[in-house]
Design a protein around this nucleic acid. Structure first.
Lengths: 192, 192
DNA sequence: CCTACCGATCGGTAGG
DNA sequence: CCTACCGATCGGTAGG
């Protein structure tokens, strides 16, 4: 009954993302991945260099989405509230539309080789800086609470956003747009 | 150079918690665990039934700590703000004092057998209910914001608390007591 | 808790 | 992308 079709490298990476998200990197074998694609584990090596390279690619794709968001909101640096609103909305959109990559990014980065991991940690730090800068600018401009502990608030906001992958369900009561709005106002209440 | 001492079952479970937290369940072999304890992988079977039973025990210990907290705060049901304060403070204390178990509980529960996993999910749901009840009582009593979306706020509060294991560092600028206080007030600002 | 092992599975390769 | 493999490692057991 298995449907035999030619598989692209894109298919391999996307399916790897799904399996790594569901079973974890170490819980997924190359034969598991082959099975999911309708081919043998050994045949995967015609598409990719190896298992770790596949993990690195899945994670790099996730990281690129968040990085693009940080770059995008940089243009709004004169309006910190709008910057924060866009960061929250963009994060929710990325996670809800790329749940597998987001999960692998958050849970499996530690299994990357040191060289790959270093690059990902660097991107994560730059992403965090986008939030910290928006909060700091908002405090300086008087639109957020004076004396706000900016590093702490940054951590809490990212805690909320990074937990989305745990509980977001497409069939849940709120659409991604609802979530973006409600999460933004929850945070805004706490920091103003 | 390796120090040979007699190992207790307690040593095995605690070391398994550390390795499962650091490398993940599927990233830890019974030989890895034996090495960390100064004995052979095969010798572990004198102490435990098998690898999955070891995971179940590490997670059950973590779950028991949270369950005890939920039971404890039930006594304060007439004072929802105090109830929430104690839930947050208790959660921070449990995580900061049992970081390995908390990590395994959060990340490796999905690798339990269906029977073991079902019990853990049940406990987690009861723990979540303690937060939901405190918030609902607070809204009913008029101490929290009228019209607060209680299920949503519950999820956000637990998102914040469950992310602690990601960023808490004993050498960080805030003590666990500082964190408990600051996290509580962050949440309180958002829900009042 | 060690010795000595078991069958199964792992990531990966040579050659087509 | 398959055939036919490789050496290494996996969780686990029998017997002491």
């Amino acid at each position: 009954m298995s449907v035999r079709v030619r598989r692209s490298r894109e298919d391999v990476v996307r399916t790897a993302g799904r399996l790594f998200a569901e079973r974890g990197y170490h819980g997924t074998s190359m034969r598991d991945l082959g099975d999911a694609l309708g081919l043998l584990g050994s045949s995967l090596y015609a598409h990719v260099d190896g298992k770790e390279g596949l993990l690195a690619e899945v994670i790099a794709r996730g990281a690129a989405l968040f990085q693009a968001l940080a770059d995008e909101v940089a243009a709004w640096e004169d309006r910190p509230t709008e910057q924060l609103r866009r960061l929250v909305a963009g994060h929710v959109r990325i996670v809800t539309e790329n749940l597998d990559e987001a999960r692998v990014f958050l849970h499996e980065t530690r299994f990357l080789s040191p060289a790959h991991r270093r690059r990902v940690v660097e991107l994560r730090d730059r992403y965090e800086a986008a939030y910290r800068d928006a909060l700091a600018k908002g405090v300086a401009a008087g639109v957020f609470r004076p004396g706000l502990d900016v590093p702490f608030a940054t951590t809490v906001v990212l805690s909320i956003l990074n937990s989305l992958e745990r509980w977001y369900r497409p069939a849940g009561p709120k659409t991604p747009e609802d979530l973006a709005r409600d999460l933004f106002y929850f945070v805004l209440e706490a920091i103003t």
